[in-house]
Amino acid sequence: MKIGTTVNGAARQDEIEDRLLLVHYLRDRCGLTATNVGCDTTSCGACTVLLDGESVKSCTVLAAQVDGREVTTVEGLSADGADPHPVQAAFRQEHGLQCGFCTPGMVMASVSLLRDNPKPTEQEVREGLEGNFCRCTGYHNIVRAVLAAADGVSS
C-alpha cells in the first residue's frame, strides 16, 4: 500500500508492505537507525518516537497507521544539527546514558513527558518513564537528567 508521512519535518511517500512496523519503516526505509528494537512485547520503550508530538512505541504501530501523520525521531530532535535539545544536553551533562541502546527511546519519552509536565517531581519522572527500560544506569542519572532538563527548559 502507499503511505504519505512527514518524518523529522520532511514529507515523503512510500510503497510499503501492509504489515510493516513503524520502527522498521523508520530504520529501513527512512534510514533512521537511531531508534532501536529492544523487545517483542511493547515493554522496553527503546523504539519510542513522537507521533504527532506524543510518545509512542514504534514497534507497536503499523507504518500504515501513520499515513498522513508526522513522526519525530531522535535524529530530528535538534533541527539541522544545531544546538542539542535541552533533554539531549542534560543526558550528556548528567551521564544519563552508558551503552546508548535505550537512549534514543528514553530521550523521546522524556521529551514527551516534559511537554505534558514541564516541572515533574522525581516520582513523576520515574512513573513517566515506567515504559522505558535501561540495564546500564540504574535510572539514577536518567532521572537526574530529566529533572535537570526540566529546570533548564523552564528557566
Binding site: 532501536n36 542539542p84 551521564h95 546514558l97 537512549t103
Partner: peptide, 21 residues
C-alpha cells in the same frame, strides 16, 4: 569530564550491529 561518546549516541544514535550499512 562529560563523555565524548554522547553527542553521537544522543543524536544519530550508536551504530549497533543491526544498524550497520
Amino acid at each position: 569530564v562529560v563523555r565524548v561518546e554522547d553527542p553521537r549516541l544522543l543524536s544519530t544514535g550508536g551504530v549497533y550491529t543491526e544498524d550497520l550499512r
